[in-house]
Amino acid sequence: MKREYAKILGVGQNATETEIKKAFRKLALKYHPDKNPSADANKMFVRICEAYEGLLEGDQVQEEPPFKGGHDSRRKYHKDLTPEELEKRMQWAREYAERKAFEEEHIHQISLSQMQRSHMRYLVPFTLLICTIFLSLISLDYLVLAPKKISGVLMNYSQSGLRIDYLIYDVEASQQHRIDHPDISNHDVFIELHARMNEDDWHAVGENTAIEVLQTPLFNDYLGFRAVDGDQRIVYHRGRMHFLFWLYFVIFLAPFIVRFFRGANSFYIVFVYLTTYLGLLTSIIYILQFVFYKLEG
């Protein structure tokens, strides 16, 4: 009989009490007379209630003998139920569903209230402000504003496995260095970039080729370079600061998406914690990465 009950609720024979209750709530909402007025739904609702009681309380029901000539057997579910007993069971199911809904809503309301009275009251708007700033900056730097172009000459390159290291002569910076430091004999300024040969955007560029280096306007991050004449496809710099740009973009955007679900519900309560701490941690990593990037440059 336990197998039949478990089959009705769609759970395993060794399902836990939590799994049984979850399956019952799901099916009760689907076949509840107030939600589904069909006759089949009423019958299914009664079977669901009996299966729920049988699995949790150990009710035993009578078995029907198997059909002659067949291998399957069928069991009846209290076939002698009177209309009063049926109505009583349905009323119990309605009250149970309403009680569970009230409890869940009450728990969500308490959790939201506790969150609003805790340190999250200040941490959430602060994180939203930080994420707004960084999301705006990286969007402007990489998606909106046109990159700066630095005139240069590809002096030489070296290969180590799939990695290609480029040494680029910076024409304008070298000229400015001569003006600012006339007493220094070495006025050459070089830019070091590297790429990988297995990248789809990689292509060979010969030595002593006139190129232009692309640099972001806000963070001065080297994006890559391309030849002035001939093949003008960009060879992207593998070591650029925001190589994982889209990852940063999604993380900084997540707190705003969660705000659309604000209210006493599980999604908002869980994800407001997740996105707040993740956004704050990513902001700190972002700042540290920028500082180290500038120190190395």
Rank of each mutant, 00 (worst) to 15 (best):
M1Q: 06
I8P: 10
V11G: 03
A15E: 03
I20Q: 01
K22I: 07
A23K: 02
A23Q: 04
F24H: 05
R25Q: 09
H32Q: 00
S38T: 15
D40Y: 03
M44F: 04
F45R: 02
R47I: 05
E50F: 09
Y52H: 13
L55H: 01
E57Y: 14
D59M: 09
V61H: 15
Q62R: 14
E64H: 10
F67P: 04
H71S: 14
H71W: 11
K79V: 13
T82Q: 05
E85N: 13
L86F: 08
E87M: 10
K88R: 13
W92P: 00
W92Q: 12
R94Y: 05
K100V: 14
A101Q: 14
F102Y: 11
E104S: 08
I107G: 00
Q109A: 12
S111C: 08
S111M: 12
Q116S: 13
L123R: 06
I130S: 09
I133D: 04
F134I: 13
D141P: 04
V144D: 00
K148M: 13
S151P: 14
L154T: 02
L154I: 02
Q159T: 15
S160L: 06
L162A: 14
R163S: 08
I164P: 00
Y166M: 02
L167E: 08
E172C: 00
Q175H: 07
R178Y: 05
I179G: 00
D183N: 13
I184K: 15
H187K: 11
H187L: 02
D188L: 11
V189C: 04
F190E: 11
D200W: 03
D201T: 05
A204W: 06
E207I: 01
T209K: 00
L214N: 02
T216V: 10
L218F: 12
D221L: 01
Y222E: 02
Y222R: 03
L223D: 03
A227W: 06
G239W: 01
W246P: 06
L247I: 15
I251E: 00
F256E: 02
V258C: 06
F260G: 00
R262N: 13
A264H: 05
N265V: 07
I269G: 10
V270A: 07
F271D: 08
F271E: 04
V272R: 13
Y273K: 15
L278W: 01
I285Q: 11
F290D: 05
K294C: 07
L295A: 08
E296W: 07
G297Y: 09
